[in-house]
Amino acid sequence: MNSKLTSYLNGVFTPYEGVKSVTELKADLHADLQERYNELRAEGKDEETAYKLTIESIGDIEQTILEVSNLSRSLERQLLTNFSASNLADSDFAGVTARKGQFNASALRGSDFAGADLTGSTFKSSDVREANFDGANLTGARFDGQTFIGVKFNKVALTEASFRGASFHNVSFHPGFVLTNKYYKMIKTICFDGATMDKLTYNALKGMGADLSNVSVN
């Protein structure tokens, strides 16, 4: 087995260690390259020439590896959607796709969900204090009965989201730079029935047109 080929592949694949599909690609590629190298040597090529021609035969392998790695990591993050009864405080969920995810009875304090797609997800009996949901897609998400302290829901998609019986203190629902008609319409679809809020959160939501007819202010 040619040691230069092994060293070359090790160098190219080092940034992607731990990604299963990339590891499998490396093993297959190593076998193919070794076979190609042996063929060239059998044709009479010297070691250096055979090595160079073998490497040239695979083209832009680094781009291929990057694409395989990105796809693999994306799929891995999408497939794992049940995070219930887990200690995930201060976790990084930024940008993940976890539609219909289960985040029930979990410790999520201080976790970052910025830009995540959490459509249809449920957060029941979980600790979400100081969590960041900025820019996330929370369409149809369920936060019933939750306690929100210092949580950010800025520039978030919240169509048909439910906060029944939830408690809010120092919670931000800032829409961004401009209050658009689309945002006004979305706010009206959110259910806050039975919720309790501090005056600051209440006034901010009221000013955006949220239905707070069944909300208590403390």
Rank of each mutant, 00 (worst) to 15 (best):
D117Q: 06
R73N: 09
L138Q: 06
Q78S: 14
S111F: 02
G150Q: 04
F133L: 06
R73Q: 13
N137K: 08
Q146V: 08
F93K: 02
N82E: 09
R129E: 15
G140V: 08
L88H: 05
S74P: 07
F93E: 03
F163E: 04
T122N: 09
S121A: 12
A105H: 14
F163R: 00
F83A: 04
R77F: 07
D90W: 11
N104M: 10
A89P: 01
N82M: 07
F163W: 02
E130C: 09
D90A: 08
E130S: 11
A141D: 00
G95H: 01
A131I: 02
F113K: 00
G115E: 07
R142G: 05
A89M: 12
A85D: 12
Q102I: 14
L108K: 01
V156W: 12
L118K: 03
A114K: 06
A157I: 14
L80Y: 15
L79Q: 15
E130H: 13
A141H: 00
F93T: 06
F83Y: 14
E76R: 08
D112Y: 02
L158H: 06
A94I: 06
S162Q: 08
T139D: 12
L79N: 12
G101S: 05
F93H: 04
L88T: 01
N154Q: 12
V128Y: 01
Q78M: 13
K155I: 15
Q146G: 12
G120C: 07
T147Q: 12
S86W: 11
L158S: 10
L138D: 05
E160Y: 12
D112T: 03
F143P: 08
A141Q: 01
S84W: 10
N132Y: 06
F133D: 05
T97R: 09
L118V: 03
D117R: 07
L75N: 11
K124E: 15
N82Q: 09
F163L: 05
G140K: 03
N87S: 14
R164A: 14
A116W: 00
L158N: 08
A105M: 13
